[in-house]
Design a binder for these strands. Structure first.
Length: 862
RNA sequence: GCCCGCUUGGCGGAAUGGUAGACGCAAGGGCCUUAAAAGCCCUUGGCCUUCGGGCCGUGCUGGUUCGAGUCCAGCAGCGGGCACCA
């Protein structure tokens, strides 16, 4: 074969792997288990480069671990419920099921062409009744265990389309289709009590040592544990009290106002008699439900004219506001504001002319600087202006206030969490039906397990607004399972995050008659390596951690944490292009003419080249993986994904980079193809003696093996790729070396090539197979063991030391590895005399100090 | 607005606090060829140079250190998440 033909070789080896069942995972395999899982894809239509990157990374791990002697579980499935299918149904008239299943077929084919070492016999799709029947069972068990419950919650409501909107469907406060201002509407919805596990979810993060630190930090902040006080304020002219929560009880004497949420009972009460309050509350409700919208809005308040009495300072009263930044879900839905020591409170106080009274003095600042202007003081210090707290530190004051509140019976210490319970109700068709029935006499009644699954009706209509399940003429009518009276099915479906909260467990025994097979789960879980995008750092990963605890509480799983190691990959970006009309155009529509100007392929009009952005359909800066595989083959696409950029960082797709990867694949092939006849047969015994050239080649081989093993373990795939380049460069150079023509040389060359084939096999498996066969093997390299480095050969014996003068490099010299400090010092000072550069830098000045860092550097300080 | 990251040549990046720029891409020069493609060889951070070398240089401003891309403080720019996108 003169030129390597990826299209021929890749399908050949994929067929061969299938025929051998190379990736079918066997339960009775005695080798240690290793479960590698990439986040399963949403079947949006076709795979994109982000998928290619994700699954290439996972496949390298899976193949590498297999070579290291593990019984690897590497499954694939489909996160198949979700909003886009329903949008497609509305926009294109295709049924969500048909659309989804057809996408799955397309994408499965594309993934298979990548040559992934996936056990396809375990494939699952969350929209399949065989999956969601078990999820319904889990829901019922959660319900029984008190982990699922109903409460009222606000949703984005589109008054024109008569439908609930997702946050992404709300654009500038308006419905994406209707353009109508979005309202908030309160609905009775299902929740999972994730807060019950808040403390455990927080504590257990400490044990997740193989998770990125930043993901753990984000989860910690998301859970948001705070220690504070709940305390009641008497109100002027009223018998009832207002209960607030604060994490800064120490600043109580700096309180300038109280503020309640627009959803607080006090606000609701006020609204009844006060039209202005009503309109202010309505304004708060028009803000949308996302935290971003609420926090990003200007901080505003409405004075209720109510006055509250300070709990410790008789006669002191503060105004009570309704404020748009106080959340009903957090604490008691009411706060006190201390402007001097909280920036948000300060901004609020300045706006409404409220007093700013300083109560904490920093210890390191002069008293003159105590005035608060535009910046609140949030640091530590000593209490002042605070009666019995004066002179105490902040922690002491917090403690003192808590004690006095508890003694007086007007408040108590309380640990609070920012984390809210997980709302899982969706007023949508394409999701897992919630298996309960609403009966006028019996209330909420679980569907008996024998009647599961509650299947989605096929004949739903998508050409009208609202929830298709709600609109369906008959589906929701069903007798109550308890009393057989006419009743109504729950028409809410489950959040798709529920589907992805336990799929990793289902993969262990994907066809089991129970949701999670105990033996299989015990064998395979936890997932040893989970790989996915950083965008899932909080929600998906936290929900899966919660669900694991729920499964343990309901006896489905004996597991603490689902993912023992996590790797978060970066995104794939590409340059953006706009035509002279200012419209985004696809990279395939752009050609660069000889003058270097980018032009439209068809019109020849100039094109503006924009910055690189994450590949997205809206910017059209997408490159279709299928097209790349057609042109260059899967190995090239995989190699490009692994080269250059570290996997946790964003990667930019470039045509020249892809072409370069293709050239490398060809070059690699030539290395195996040319001169292979002159090599000794496979398994030939090593010669007794190796000449200098052969020994040098062997050192390179074993050094590469040693370094690459470390790089792959650490996910430093781009560095591993660089090592392969160095190895291949070295092998190419050695090719013309006459000293390597002897028996020792050709033996060393075979050793090198065999190692090379096995080293690249996890990354570019097809050409690795072709190379392995070319070397005369009848086995597949996929089943071969990872090569072992001979440390004696890999060891370097000479090292080049840098000589610095006052920290600046002035020269170098070679010494034996491991030479002790004293000897190095003597040699370095001798070099300092002989090497002109060093001598000039020293200028004959007296040497004050010589610092020797073993095998690294000598620094002469003058 | 809040939380979390990232920032090194023309580009992607490498570098246990110890010789900054490995490796790749791009560019330039040369070889091979009737020509092209492919391949092979060389050069390539900036400024200066008497060609020996010198000075500067890892987003910015400071600090710690014999020595900082790496550690600390502050700032800027870009990105991810913010509970109904997945």
């Amino acid at each position: 074969m003169a030129r390597y033909e990826p299209a021929v070789a890749e399908s050949k080896w994929q067929t061969e792997w299938n025929a051998r069942g190379a990736f079918t995972c066997r339960e009775d395999d005695p080798r240690p288990k290793y479960y590698v899982l990439e986040m399963f894809p949403y079947p949006s239509g076709r795979i994109h480069m982000g998928h290619v990157r994700n699954y290439t990374l996972g496949d390298v791990v899976a193949r590498y671990k297999r070579a290291r002697g593990h019984n690897v579980l590497h499954p694939m499935g489909w996160d198949a419920f979700g909003l886009p299918a329903e949008n497609a149904a509305r926009d294109k008239g295709i049924h969500p099921k048909a659309w989804t299943l057809s996408n799955i077929d397309t994408m499965r084919g594309e993934l298979q062409r990548m040559g992934l070492s996936i056990d396809w016999s375990r494939e699952i799709a969350t929209c399949h009744p065989g999956y969601y029947v078990h999820q319904q069972k889990l829901f019922l068990d959660f319900l029984k265990a008190g982990l699922a419950y109903r409460k009222k919650a606000r949703v984005n409501w589109d008054p024109i389309d008569q439908t609930v909107l997702a946050n992404e469907q709300v654009i500038d406060g308006k419905g994406w289709r209707s353009g109508a201002p979005v309202e908030k509407r309160e609905l009775e919805q299902w929740f999972f009590s994730i807060t019950r596990f808040a403390e455990d979810l927080l504590q257990a993060l400490d044990g997740l040592n193989n998770w990125p630190e930043r993901v753990r930090i984000m989860q910690r902040n998301w859970i948001g544990r705070s220690e504070g006080c709940r305390l009641r304020w008497e109100m002027v002219g009223r018998a009832d009290q207002l209960e607030i929560y604060t994490t800064r009880p120490d600043t109580l004497f700096g309180a300038a106002f109280l503020a309640v949420s627009a959803d607080h009972p006090l606000a609701t009460e006020r609204a009844k008699s006060d039209a202005n309050a009503r309109s202010f509350i309505a304004e708060c409700h028009s803000l949308g439900t996302s935290e971003e919208a609420i926090e990003g809005a200007e901080k505003r308040g409405y004075d209720t004219t109510l006055r509250a009495k300070h709990p410790f300072r008789a006669g002191d009263t503060v105004p009570v506001y309704i404020a748009n930044f106080v959340l009903m879900e957090y604490g008691t839905g009411a706060i006190f504001g201390c402007p001097a020591h909280d920036q948000r409170d300060l901004d609020f106080a300045r706006k409404y002319g409220l007093p700013v009274r300083r109560v904490v003095a920093p210890t390191d600042t002069a008293a003159a600087d105590l005035e608060i202007r535009d910046v609140a003081y949030t640091g530590d210090g000593i209490l002042m202006n605070s009666e019995f707290l004066d002179g105490l530190t902040v922690p002491q004051a917090k403690d003192e206030v808590a004690k006095r509140l508890e003694k007086a019976g007007t408040g108590k210490r309380e640990v609070n969490y920012r984390l809210r319970d997980w709302g899982v109700s969706r007023q949508r068709y394409w999701g897992c039906p919630i298996p309960v029935v609403h009966c006028p006499s019996c209330g909420v009644v679980p569907v008996p397990e024998s009647e599961l699954p509650v299947q989605l009706p096929e004949d739903a209509r998508f050409d009208q607004s609202g929830n298709p399940l709600e609109n369906h003429p008959t589906w929701k009518n069903t007798p109550c399972p308890k009393c057989r009276q006419a009743a109504r099915r729950e028409t809410d479906t489950l959040d798709t995050f529920v589907d992805s909260s336990w799929y990793f467990a289902r993969f262990c025994a994907p066809r089991a008659s129970v949701p999670i097979d105990g033996n299989a789960a015990a064998k395979w879980l936890p997932v040893d390596q989970y790989i996915g995008g950083i965008e899932h750092a909080v929600l998906h990963l936290l929900y899966a951690r919660f669900f694991t605890r729920g499964l343990r509480a309901t006896g489905h799983l004996a597991l603490d944490e689902p993912f023992s190691a996590l790797f978060t990959q970066g995104m794939v970006g590409h340059q953006t292009y706009k035509d002279d009309q200012g419209k985004w155009i696809f990279p395939t529509e752009v050609v660069v003419s000889e003058d270097g100007q980018a032009r439209h392929k068809d019109t020849g009009r100039p094109v503006t080249v924009g910055r690189s952005e994450k590949m997205s359909k809206s910017l059209k800066n997408v490159v279709d993986p299928g097209g790349i595989i057609d042109k260059y083959g899967a190995d090239t696409a995989r190699w490009f994904m692994l080269s250059d950029s570290p996997p946790e960082r964003d990667l930019e797709w470039t045509d020249s980079g892809a072409a370069g990867a293709f050239r490398f694949v060809q070059r690699l092939w030539r290395l195996f193809d040319e001169g292979t006849e002159t090599l000794p047969r496979t398994g030939a015994p090593a010669p007794q003696q190796f000449g200098a050239a052969a020994a040098k080649l062997r050192a390179l081989t074993h050094r590469t093996i040693a370094k690459m093993s470390v790089d792959l373990e650490k996910f430093r795939f781009n560095v591993a790729v660089a090592r392969i380049y160095e190895f291949v460069n070295g092998l190419s150079d050695a090719g013309g070396d006459a000293d390597l023509k002897g028996p020792d040389g050709v033996w060393a060359r075979r050793e090198a090539l065999e190692a090379l084939a096995r080293l690249v096999a996890p990354m570019i498996p097809h050409i690795a197979e072709e190379a392995w066969a070319r070397l005369g093997h009848r086995t597949v390299v996929t089943d071969e063991a990872w090569p072992t480095a001979d440390d004696a050969l890999a060891r370097e014996d000479v090292v080049t030391l840098g000589v610095q003068v006052n920290g600046k490099l002035r020269g170098t010299f070679d010494v034996a590895v491991g030479m002790d400090e004293a000897a190095v010092r003597v040699l370095a000072l001798k070099e300092a005399e002989t090497q002109e550069r060093i001598r000039n830098a020293l200028e004959g000045k007296p040497i004050r100090k010589v610092i020797v860092v073993k095998d690294r550097v000598v620094n002469i300080v003058v």
